[in-house]
C-alpha cells in the first residue's frame, strides 16, 4: 500500500565559499560541525539527512531554531541546492532536473506554505491564490474558479476581493494554504505555517488543516518547532538537532522511547494520555500476582491499544485491575492502579 513519495538519501548542505572542500573533508575525516566552522569557515546547515515520506502521510520535522529544519525543507523543491546526497520527489531525481522541468515540478506538483505567509500585498486574495496558476499560464477564468474553490476549502468565502493587509494573521495564513492548494499539488511543504500565530488561532488552524488533510490526502512535510503541534498533526515525526536527524518515529515512539537526552528533554512536558497505549505499560498476565480481594475474572476487559486517557475512564468505574486483551481477544496483560499511575507519570511501566 505504501509508496515513497519523497526520498532523501545522505543529504548535506554546507554554507560558505569553501563548501566543496569542507564537504570532502567531512566525508574523508568525519569532521564535526564546530570543526568545519573552525577549519573552513563554513556552516553545516544539514548533515546526512536520510528519510522517506509515504504517500498521504503527514511527516513532521521538529527542531529548535537553527536546527536546519527550514533549510532541509527547502531542499525538497530545490530552493536550496544540496552540497551532497540525492533527493527524489514523486519518483523524479530532483537534482537532475533542468530549469524548465524544475519550474514545472514546483508549479504543478509541490505546493509550499511559509511562516510569514509571503503574500503579494498588491494583489487581492483571489489573485494571490491564483498566482501559481498564473505562473503556469492558466487563463483568468480558470484561475478564478480554482481560487474560489480553494478559498472555500479554507473557509474564506467572501474575502476574495480584499487585500492581504485587510486580513488578520490567521486569515492570511489560510490564504497562504489556499494558494499552496491551488495548483492541486501531490506534495505540500509547510514551513512553520502556524508558528507566527497566537495559540488559539494556531489550534483552530491545526484542526482545520487536519480536517483538510484527511479529505485531500496530500503528502505533507510539516516543519514546526512545537512538539505538541508535531504530535497532534504528524503521522511520523523527525527530530532534528544541529542539522542532523536525531530520531524518526511515530508520536508514541518518540514519547515512549526518546533516542537521547535531547529528545527526552523535549518529551518531558508532553501529555502522554493519548500517546501511550495499554500494551506498553501492562504487566504480563502470567507474571501478575493478584492482591487480596482482587479477582481477575471480575475485571473489565479492554483491547491492547486503549490509550491512557481511556484506561483512566475505565479504572474509575471499578476496584478491580484492568485486563488487557490482544487483537485476538485473548487475555495478555493486567494493569492495576499503581501501574496506571506510573504509566501516566513516565509513559513506561
Amino acid at each position: 500500500m505504501s509508496e515513497s513519495v519523497i526520498k532523501l538519501q545522505g543529504v548535506w548542505k554546507i554554507f560558505g565559499d569553501r563548501a566543496d572542500e569542507a564537504m570532502a573533508a567531512v566525508q574523508q575525516r568525519g569532521l564535526t560541525k564546530p570543526e568545519v566552522l573552525n577549519e573552513f569557515g563554513c556552516v553545516v546547515g544539514i548533515a546526512d539527512c536520510t528519510f522517506s515520506v509515504e504517500r498521504g502521510e503527514i511527516f513532521c520535522v521538529m527542531g529548535l531554531s537553527g536546527s536546519g529544519k527550514s533549510t532541509m525543507v527547502r531542499h525538497l523543491n530545490r530552493l536550496i541546492e544540496p552540497t551532497a546526497g540525492s533527493i527524489e520527489v514523486l519518483g523524479k531525481d530532483m537534482l537532475a532536473l533542468g530549469g524548465e522541468e524544475l519550474r514545472e515540478m514546483r508549479a504543478m506538483h509541490i505546493g509550499m506554505v511559509f511562516q510569514h505567509m509571503a503574500l503579494l500585498p498588491h494583489r487581492t486574495v483571489r489573485d494571490n491564490v491564483g498566482f501559481p496558476l498564473q505562473v503556469r499560464g492558466e487563463p483568468k477564468s480558470k484561475r478564478w474558479e480554482v481560487s474560489q474553490q480553494c478559498l472555500n476549502l479554507v473557509n474564506l468565502e467572501g474575502y476574495e476581493d480584499r487585500f492581504p493587509r485587510e486580513l488578520s494573521g490567521g486569515m492570511q495564513q489560510r490564504v497562504g494554504l489556499a494558494r499552496a492548494l491551488a495548483s492541486n499539488p501531490e506534495v505540500l511543504l509547510m514551513d512553520e505555517p502556524f508558528s507566527a500565530l497566537d495559540p488559539l488561532i494556531r489550534r483552530q488552524l491545526q484542526d482545520q488543516f487536519m480536517a483538510l488533510s484527511a479529505e485531500l490526502q496530500k503528502t505533507t512535510v510539516f516543519i514546526t518547532h512545537d512538539l505538541d503541534e508535531a504530535i497532534r498533526i504528524g503521522n511520523r515525526i523527525a527530530i532534528m538537532k544541529d542539522g542532523m536527524i536525531v530520531q524518526i518515529g511515530t508520536p508514541e515512539d518518540i514519547v515512549t522511547n526518546p533516542a537521547d537526552e535531547y529528545v527526552k528533554d523535549f518529551v518531558e512536558g508532553i501529555s502522554k494520555l493519548k500517546l501511550v497505549f495499554a500494551h506498553s505499560i501492562m504487566e504480563k498476565i502470567s507474571d501478575y500476582k493478584p492482591a487480596r480481594g482482587e479477582n481477575l475474572t471480575k475485571s473489565p476487559r479492554t483491547p491492547h491499544d486503549t490509550d491512557l486517557d481511556h484506561l483512566i475512564d475505565i479504572a474509575t468505574t471499578t476496584t478491580q485491575p484492568i485486563v488487557i486483551q490482544d487483537s485476538a481477544g485473548k487475555d495478555v496483560g493486567v494493569i492495576n492502579k499503581s501501574t496506571l499511575l506510573k504509566g501516566i507519570q513516565g509513559g513506561k511501566a
Partner: peptide, 15 residues
C-alpha cells in the same frame, strides 16, 4: 523587496 516573498514566488515556479 522581502526575500521571503521572492522565495515564495520562486517556489511556485516563477521564471
Amino acid at each position: 523587496v522581502p526575500e521571503g516573498t521572492k522565495e515564495a514566488a520562486v517556489a511556485f515556479g516563477c521564471t
